[in-house]
Amino acid sequence: MSTAVNQAMVEKYKGNFLKEVTENVEEGNWVKMCMQCGVCSGSCPLGPHWDHPPQEIFMMIRANKREEVLSSTSMWMCTSCYNCIARCPRGLPITHIMHGLAHYSKRIGLKPKNQPTEKFGQMFWDNLTKKGRVNELKLGLGLYFKDGFAEGVKVAMSKQKLGMNMMKAKRMSPMEMLGGHGVSDLAGFHAMLKKAEELEAARVGENTDKK
């Protein structure tokens, strides 16, 4: 589906990426208001680890660097510290825009490959939606072993103490391995998620259909 959506978007916006972002990305209608002061870029605690800081991303959007932006790892690095929002002189909800861009890139299939945050996000979602509650043990182990068995054992060993403490504090139970806890109306929960997905697909579809 995602490639098709991507194609449809490319077709629809014909090189006007700013417009595409404005109309499709959560809070994307704010991107046009950036005046390139760079205070967000300088305020980001993880800034040095990004390909492109927010202000540069916003410039790249105007410069129609669609592929580069959407496949960038940058948006995935946001930790939601809100420094940028607090300082932005134009009031841009930068944190939300970054998350919006990340989500959009995933939706249309341009997300970066092997981006840990993205991987973790997916894992978290899958874990959560299964039972309606997060299964810490499975999520933790899944995360440890995401880069293969040997690496997983190594990480698990190093985190041993943390795991023991969590068990002592009753924050995690080894019994969780066997199914684990969930919401009482699991069927209702899944129905709800399905409906939400339908609504979202319809919204995206509607937008791609519109000429």
Partner: peptide, 24 residues
């Protein structure tokens, strides 16, 4: 650049943090 923040080092010198947006 719009300076992001100012800190102070141990000698009382202000240290400016930010990004020169011309070329990042």
């Amino acid at each position: 650049s719009k300076v992001a923040k100012v800190e102070q080092d141990k000698d009382g010198n202000p240290v400016l943090h930010g990004v020169n947006t011309e070329g990042y």
